[in-house]
Design a binder for these strands. Structure first.
Length: 261
DNA sequence: ATGGCTACTCCTAGTAGA
């Protein structure tokens, strides 16, 4: 018996799928992932570039809105059992979560709120969104299943994930409350995929557009793969495609790719 | 020391991102 080929699953905050379309298509051609979760698509569903994505060989399920937020899952086979949003999202809620099953893996793609200034309404919304995400996991998902949550979590889990942890201490993305919110997902039953394989600092997924931050190495690791234990046991690698942050008109986030045997 | 860039829209200024 030939073992099944490993699945390569990617997450990428593209910062507008329409502004980034040429790069997204070139990246799909180069990396050929099986599944891709996109965040910050910034487009209503009718205007999602589904035809171009289909021509590249991918089905797309989308959950977008005008200007802000927006998530999608691309896959070589049709994603099934699609869930859009959290059950207690109100009408007109920000579109930040999409889930689907592909290749026997339950894939949850998330774009966590940024949080604005610490102590602001946006910050409170972020922490509450994490609370609601955890409640949905408790109610609707199975930590014993092959499930992953990936996306832009807008939290750097610890000081290794921050280029200047002293300057960032207490700032949005790095506060204890945000880190505890992320840890609340781990307590449900997922582990940080990248840390299964690599312990060093300096592995970043986001660099500010300003001040030449990328070239100065001023980054944070805020895009993650969280894997249930059964899936973690099959995860052979998690790689940050740092090269995709280079060149003309990049997203401010690099893609992250998990390999699952 | 510095909100320094990018993308969006009710568009050429204001908002948001992280």
């Amino acid at each position: 018996m030939t073992p099944p080929a490993p699945l390569r699953i990617a997450t990428w905050n593209v910062n507008s799928v329409r502004a980034r379309l040429a790069r997204v298509l070139a990246w799909l051609e180069r990396q050929r992932p099986d599944i891709v979760c996109l965040q910050e698509t910034k487009v209503v569903d009718d205007d999602f570039p589904a035809a171009e994505i289909a021509a590249a060989g991918y089905r797309a399920v989308v959950f977008g809105q005008k200007t802000y937020n927006g998530v999608a899952i691309l896959a070589r086979e049709e994603p099934v059992d699609v869930v859009r949003g959290l059950p207690d999202d109100g009408p007109g809620a920000e579109r930040r979560l999409i889930a689907a099953t592909v290749g026997g893996v339950r894939v949850v793609g998330v774009y966590a709120p940024n949080g604005g200034e610490v102590g602001s309404d946006k910050y409170a919304f972020k922490l509450d969104w994490y609370r609601r995400l955890r409640a949905w996991l408790d109610a609707a998902c199975d930590p014993a299943a092959a499930l992953l949550i990936c996306g832009d979590f807008n939290v750097a889990p610890d000081d290794r994930d921050v280029y200047d942890p002293v300057a960032w201490r207490g700032q949005t993305l790095c506060t204890d409350a945000e880190r505890e919110a992320l840890a609340g997902l781990a307590a449900w039953g997922v582990v940080d995929g990248l840390r299964l394989h690599r312990q060093e600092g300096g592995l970043y997924t986001w660099w500010d557009y300003r001040a030449g931050a990328f070239h100065r190495g001023w980054g944070l690791r805020i895009d993650h793969f969280l894997l249930t234990h059964p899936l973690a046991a099959r995860c052979t690698a998690v790689d940050i495609d740092r090269d995709e942050r280079k060149g003309d008109k990049p997203s401010d986030h690099a893609p992250v790719i998990a390999t699952v045997g």
